[in-house]
Simulated assay, not measured.
Amino acid sequence: MTKAPSLRSATDTTRNDHTREKLLLAALELFGQYGFEGVSTRKLAERAGVNLQAINYYFDNKRGLYNAVADYLIERLQIRVGDRRKIVLERFAEAQSGDRPIDATEARDILIAVGESLLTLFADDESAIWVRYMVREQAEPTEAFDRIYTGFMQPMLTAVRHLVGILIEADPSSERTRLRTLSLVGSLIIYRVGRATILREMGWSAVGPEQIIAIRGIAADLVAGICPIGESAT
């Protein structure tokens, strides 16, 4: 016979998880819009529709909630690009071990696939909330930025840098390769942070399925432009 306390415990756990996620979603939106100092705990609780004491219960304080948002963001990003990220990192690790080096053709194909995945993510309306939070952290980095960089950005940048190094025939750790990698990533990110300009310039009222297909196609063009010094992109 199932004991009643166990049933209540499962129900309470589900309720607690739901309350915690509501706070994280509200915090992600509000912190992205107004920054850490611009949001009160009362406003956070009201937006989440929970009791004010819930913030201290789940996160200790507002700073704890702010940092937890960074961890939550990493989880969401991994879910959205998880499969592609896993494939890239595993292939990168294999190449690093010397078992099966990556040649220029494969490097280009992988970069295009990564670019397409990121452009698809950035075209999604959900990413607008994420990016506002991340842009604030880029402008004034806190512990939250360290979490995002270490937990998600750094592993991918390292792999992408290795692939770019193959294409430009340069040391992946060199300044030139790092800057070229950042240039590529920046060219992808503009499709999220520069959304208003893109809509105006393209004459689009919104980004729908057709627009996403067009944007994804840019990935191949961007990667095609990566080549050694002195060589022209073909």
Rank of each mutant, 00 (worst) to 15 (best):
A27C: 11
E29I: 02
L30H: 03
F31K: 03
F31M: 05
F31Q: 00
G32Q: 05
Y34Q: 13
G38Q: 13
S40P: 07
S40R: 10
S40T: 15
T41L: 07
R42I: 14
L44D: 04
A45W: 07
E46C: 01
E46R: 15
E46K: 13
R47S: 14
G49T: 10
V50T: 15
N51R: 14
Q53C: 02
Q53V: 06
A54E: 08
I55G: 02
I55V: 15
N56D: 10
N56A: 13
N56C: 04
N56L: 03
N56Q: 14
F59Q: 03
R63P: 01
L65P: 00
N67M: 10
A68N: 00
A68C: 00
V69M: 09
V69F: 05
V69Y: 02
A70T: 06
D71T: 11
L73Q: 07
E75R: 12
R80D: 12
R80L: 05
R80S: 08
V81P: 03
D83N: 09
R84H: 02
R84Q: 15
R85C: 00
K86M: 10
K86D: 12
I87Q: 13
I87A: 14
I87V: 13
E90K: 15
E90S: 13
E90D: 15
R91K: 11
R91E: 07
F92D: 08
A93C: 05
E94F: 03
A95W: 04
Q96C: 06
S97D: 14
S97P: 05
G98V: 11
P101H: 10
I102M: 08
I102R: 03
D103Y: 11
D103T: 10
A104K: 14
A104L: 03
T105G: 06
A107L: 09
A107E: 05
R108Q: 11
R108A: 10
I110W: 02
I110T: 01
L111R: 08
L111D: 06
I112M: 06
I112Q: 07
A113I: 00
V114D: 04
G115V: 07
G115N: 08
L118S: 04
L119Q: 02
L119H: 05
T120E: 13
L121M: 15
A123S: 15
A123T: 05
D124E: 14
E126K: 08
S127A: 05
A128W: 08
V131I: 15
V131W: 11
R132C: 04
Y133Q: 00
